[in-house]
Amino acid sequence: MGWFDKLRSKTAKSQENQLKQEIPPQKTSDLWKKCPGCGETILTKDLVRNLFLCIKCDYHMRMPVWDRVALLADDNSFVEFNQELKSADPLNFVDSKPYPQRIEEAIKKTDAFDAAMTGYVQIEGIKAILGVMNFEFMGGSMGSVVGEKLTDALERGASEKLPVVIVATSGGARMQEGILSLMQMAKTSAAVKKLNTAKVPFISILTDPTTGGVSASFASLGDFNIAEPNALICFAGPRVIEQTIRQKLPEGFQKAKFLLEHGMLDCIVHRRTLKKQVGKILHILNNGR
C-alpha cells in the first residue's frame, strides 16, 4: 500500500486547509426532470432547491452526490480524502465500448473520479466520517475504487474512533472489473466488522436504489439502517425475480416500507429531517460510548 499512502498524504496536504463546500455547477443538460412517482415534469433548478423531492407528490428522487453532502454536512465541514483514486482496467474489459472509455465518460459527466466520495465531516456538530455513493457514475457500481474508499473510510473510523455514515446508492458490483469487484464486498464488510469490534457506530443510509453487491455487503450492516421513502432496496432486482419465478410481484415489493415491515431497517426517514435524525442517533450513540 506504499503508493497509496503517498497518494493519501498528497491529497490530504492539498486539501486539509481547503474546506470543500463550493458545489460544482450541476452538469446536467436536462432542464427538466420527470417525477417517477406522479409523472409531473419539474424544472431541475426547482428540484435542486427542493432537495430533489417532487414538488407535487413529495417523491424522493435520486440526489446528486454534492447535494447529498450539502444535505448532511454542517457548513464547510466536509474534507474529502482519497479524492484522486482512479480505476484501472484490470481485465482489459470491452463490451459495447472499452471500460477506460466508460470511466472517462463518467468522469466528464459527473466531475468525480469514481462512484463514491469519502471525507471527514461534522453532522449537527458531531465529528464523523461520511461516504456518499454516486449513482450518476456508472450506476453507482462498486469496483476497486469504491471498495477501497469505503474500506479506508471505515478503517479511519475504527482507528480514529469517529462514527461512520455511508449513503448507499448502487446497482451493485461493477461487472467491468470482474472478480475484483466481487471481492470488494468481502473487503468492505470485513471493514464494517473492524468498526464493530472497535465499538464505533456505523449508520447506513440506503437510498434509491441500493441493490446487488452493495446491498449484500456493507450497506446492510449498519448498526442503524435508515432508508429514504420509496427507495428500492434488494439483492436481486425485480426484473430478475419476475423472470426466475414467472409471476407478478406484489405492489411495493422491495421498497423501503416493505423492508421496514420485514425487519431489515430501523426506520424510514424523510429527506428533510434526515440530517437532524442522523445527528440525533449519533449523539445518543456517542453518549453511550
Binding site: 464486498m185 470485513a190 449484500a216 450497506a219 446492510s220 450492516l221 439483492f235 425487519g263 431489515m264
Partner: peptide, 17 residues
C-alpha cells in the same frame, strides 16, 4: 420473493463480515 422477504442481502453481508 421469500429470499428477499427474509433478507438475502443481510444474510450474505453478515457472513462476509
Amino acid at each position: 420473493i421469500g429470499a428477499e422477504e427474509r433478507g438475502q442481502s443481510e444474510a450474505i453481508a453478515k457472513n462476509l463480515a
